[in-house]
């Protein structure tokens, strides 16, 4: 079965992103697929390459990236929600004349149409609140 996950919570701020990771791993381990993980509202902060948690705490960014690599996961960050909150790709940073980019490898910025499309084609959509 094909799942889409919507993540609303900022990492290391509320539990939602960590819970979404647990769900994602379980779904993939039981033979299901994940069509897309869509990061919205404060959830866009999950895509920040600059997160630097202490070594004795879980590394949520690293966990997303390793899942992305092992399962070719589609990690889509809402571009409008990201811009407001200061999460920019190289091209967006240039276009908006901002001093730096911080979108992590493995994540893609895209519009809300990607959420609509994922809801339309996935078998199940599950939201992880902030």
């Amino acid at each position: 079965m094909q799942f889409t996950l919507v993540v609303y919570g900022a990492p290391h701020s509320s539990e939602g992103a960590a819970t979404a990771l647990r769900f994602a791993r379980a779904a993939l381990a039981t033979g299901h697929s994940i069509y897309r993980v869509f990061f919205y509202a404060d959830g866009v902060h999950n895509g920040s390459a600059l997160a630097a948690p202490p070594q004795d705490e879980q590394d949520l960014l690293g966990q997303w990236q390793s899942l992305q690599q092992s399962h070719a996961l589609d990690l889509t960050v809402c571009i409008a929600a990201a811009q407001r909150r200061g999460l920019l790709s190289e091209s967006e940073a240039n276009r908006l004349e901002k001093p730096s980019a911080n979108l992590a490898d493995g994540f893609t910025l895209a519009g809300l149409g990607q959420l609509a499309e994922a809801a339309a084609v996935s078998d199940r959509l599950i939201s992880f609140g902030g």
Partner: peptide
Amino acid sequence: IDETAWVDLCVAHTPIVSWFR
């Protein structure tokens, strides 16, 4: 339940509604 059983619950139900904050 564990996370695997959670996935099974999701497979067995539609829709899935999250109530948060």
